[in-house]
Nucleic acid binder design. Structure first.
Lengths: 342, 342
DNA sequence: TATTTTTGATAAATCCTTTTAGCAAGTTCC
DNA sequence: GGAACTTGCTAAAAGGATTTATCAAAAATA
C-alpha cells in the first residue's frame, strides 16, 4: 500500500539515462552542464508526470544544510513569544525554512539539553531567548559555526548577534510619564531576575526617579511559579504596606494582570487612586476599564529583524564575521483618559 | 575552524575496526551480534571520549523515519493553540520527537501547500486542525500512511483519528444555565463557518432553547478579519436592534472580547442588564469585573490525548488499522456572583 | 583426524542526492 | 591529416548511518 516514493534513480532508470543528468536538470544546471534541450524537456515533462519531489533528507545529508531553524523561547504559550512565532513562521516558510520551537522555562539545564539535541539534528540556525548561565553553550554554538541570533535579551559578555528593544529608554519614558502626571511615589513591581532586559527596565525606572529627585520603591517577586506563589496577594500586601503609592509600574504584563487583581481586591480605583503603566502591551489593556497604559514592543519589527538577521547569518559565506545587532524602539501607549489625570 | 563532526566511520578507523561493529555496539546489539565484551567496552569508552553523537539526518534517511511531527493549527499565536503547543512540545520531546509548527489561517490553499511541503520533508506525523475543503488532502496523507490526528474539529466524511471536545453538549449546558437564571431571550453570537465545532456549538444552543420553548436568536459575523471588520461595532448594532436581549452566548472567546467592548460602549451592565457566557475560557475572564462565565476546554487533557494518540499511530506496526477517536468533556465555569442573579 | 558448530567480526548494499572528474564522438583549426 | 576543442552525457565518490549476508578461525563433535 505504502506508495514508495519515486527517487531520482527511478527516473533515471525509467528514461534510460544517468542519475547525474537528471540531477543537473532538476537543479537548473542543464544549460551550464550542456544537457541538450531535447533531453531536458523530456526529463522535465516526465518529472511533472510522476510528480517527483526530491528528498530533503538526502539533500540535507549531502549538502550539510537542513533548512531548519530552532526557535527557542522561554515559553511558547506566552502571548508575546507566540505572536513572534507566528510572524517568524510566515517569513521563514517564504524562504524555504522550517521552524522547530521549544521552551526553556528559563531553565539553563533544559536549554542546554535542548541545544544539544538540536546540534545533532543538524539544524542550521538558532533564535534564542537565552536563559541565565548560557554563555558557554552559546559560545560553543558560535564556534561550531551555527547561525545564532539572540532576542528579547542578549548576553553582554559575548559577541553574538541579537535583536532587542530599548528597555531602559522606554522604562525611563513611562516612569517620566507617571511623574509628569503628578505621581510622587511610584512603585516598580518586577521579578527577581538577572536577565538583562529586566535589569534595564529597572534602571530606566531608577534613572527617571533619580532625575526628578524621587525615592525609588522596588518590589521584587520571586521568579518561579508566579501565580501559584500567590503573586496577586503578595502585591496586595505590598500595596497595603506602602499606602502612599500613587503610581505603579509593572515590569511585565503578567505582573500587571496580577496587580490589577490586587488593586481590585483593595478597591483601589484607577486612575483616581493610582496611575498604572506596564511593560509589554496586551489586547487586554484596551479592554479593561479603564484602559491601561502600556509599552508595546514592536512585534512585527522584531520578527522581521529576526528573520532578516537569521537569513543574513545563514547565507553568509563563512568568510566575513557576520554581525547583526539591532535595538528597536517601543511604543508607549498612554491610555488613561485625560479628564482623570491627577 | 568548523569542527568536523566525528562520524561512525572515523571511530571505526581510529580503532582499526569495522563500521558495522561500531554500529552494532551503538545500537545495543553487541550481545546479540556476538561482539566480545572486551571490544564493546573499548568502543563505548572511545565514543564517550570523543563525544560522538550519531547524525539524525543519516539515520532518518536510512530508516525512513524522521521523528518529526507537524503541528498545524489555524493560528499558532492564538492563546488556545499556543497553550496546546506548549504541552505537546513537552511530551513530544520526552519521546524523542521534534515539533515543527505552522499556521493555516484556515485557508485551504495554504494548508495544502504546507502539507505538500512537509510530505517531502519526510515528517512522520501530522496533528492538524483541518481547514474547510481538506478532505482529499487528508485522505492522501492517510493513503501514504502518514500518522494523522485531527483536533479541535474533525472531518465527518472520512475515517481519521481525532481528539475533540463535547461542543454540542457544553453549549447546551451553558445555554441551559442562562435559561435557569432567568434569561428568556438569549442571543448566540458566532461567525459564519462550516467548521464542525462551530456548527455543534450552535446546535447545542439551539436544542437548549427549543427544549425550553424559547426563540432562537443567532447573530453571525463574517469569518475573516474580525477586528478589522469592526466586529465590536457590528455586535453593538446587533444588541441595539435586539433591545430585549437578556443573555448572550459567545461562540468563542475572541467574540466575547469584542462583545465586552460593545456592551461597554452601550453602558450595559453585567449581570444586571445581561448575562454572559463564552466558549473557550480565558485568563482574562477571571480578571474582568465582573468575572465572565465560560466553557473551558481541557487543554492539558487535549494535549495529553494528542500525544498519546500520535505515538500510538506512529508506533503502530503497519499491521492494524489504528483508530484513535477521543471526545473530551469541557468544564463550565459559572462566575457571576450569585447575588447578582436575575 | 576430519567434520560440524560456534565465535567474533566485517564487506557491501542501501537510503537519496550532489558534484567532480572524465570519456567518447563530433568539430574546428592549421 | 592530426592536434585541440566542444558537445553531451555519465561513473563514481561522498555524506552518515543500518543491516544482511558472509567469512575465517577456533572450538566442539564424531
Amino acid at each position: 500500500m505504502a506508495k514508495k516514493k519515486t527517487s531520482i534513480k527511478d527516473i533515471a532508470k525509467s528514461l534510460g539515462i544517468s542519475i547525474t543528468t537528471v540531477s543537473f536538470i532538476l537543479n537548473g544546471k542543464a544549460k551550464e552542464k550542456r544537457i541538450s534541450e531535447e533531453l531536458t524537456l523530456k526529463v522535465e515533462e516526465y518529472i511533472k508526470e510522476v510528480g517527483y519531489k526530491p528528498s530533503h533528507l538526502a539533500q540535507s545529508l549531502r549538502l550539510g544544510k537542513s533548512k531548519v531553524i530552532v526557535f527557542m523561547v522561554e515559553d511558547i504559550s506566552n502571548q508575546f513569544f507566540a505572536s513572534i512565532a507566528r510572524k517568524i513562521e510566515e517569513k521563514a516558510y517564504k524562504s524555504g525554512y522550517k521552524i522547530i520551537y521549544c521552551s526553556t522555562d528559563n531553565d539553563p539545564e533544559k536549554a542546554k539539553a535542548l541545544i544539544d539535541t538540536f546540534k545533532v539534528r543538524s539544524v542550521d540556525g538558532f533564535i534564542i531567548t537565552p536563559t541565565p548561565a548560557l554563555e558557554s553553550t552559546v559560545l560553543e554554538l558560535l564556534e561550531e559555526e551555527f547561525a545564532v541570533l539572540l532576542f528579547d535579551r542578549w548576553i553582554p559578555s559575548i559577541d553574538c548577534s541579537y535583536v532587542v528593544v530599548e528597555n531602559e529608554k522606554s522604562a525611563f519614558e513611562a516612569t517620566s510619564h507617571l511623574i509628569q502626571n503628578g505621581c510622587k511615589n511610584i512603585g516598580f513591581i518586577t521579578v527577581e531576575s538577572d536577565q538583562i532586559q529586566m535589569i534595564d527596565r529597572l534602571q530606566g525606572y531608577g534613572h527617571a526617579m533619580e532625575s526628578h529627585g524621587l525615592k525609588k520603591n522596588v518590589f521584587m517577586l520571586p521568579f518561579h511559579n508566579l501565580s501559584e506563589f500567590g503573586a496577586s496577594s503578595k502585591i496586595q500586601q505590598y500595596i497595603q504596606k506602602n499606602s502612599d503609592l500613587d503610581g505603579l509600574f509593572f515590569a511585565t504584563n503578567y505582573l500587571a494582570f496580577e496587580g490589577l487583581q490586587a488593586l481590585n481586591s483593595l478597591k483601589k480605583r484607577i486612575p483616581e487612586d493610582v496611575l498604572l503603566v506596564s511593560f509589554d502591551d496586551h489586547y487586554f489593556f484596551t479592554l479593561f476599564q479603564p484602559n491601561i497604559s502600556a509599552i508595546e514592543q514592536p512585534i512585527e519589527s522584531i520578527a522581521e529583524k529576526l528573520m532578516e538577521g537569521m537569513l543574513m547569518l545563514l547565507e553568509d559565506d563563512e568568510s566575513s564575521k557576520p554581525d547583526y545587532k539591532v535595538t528597536l524602539p517601543n511604543i508607549l501607549h498612554i491610555r488613561e483618559s485625560s479628564d482623570y489625570k491627577i
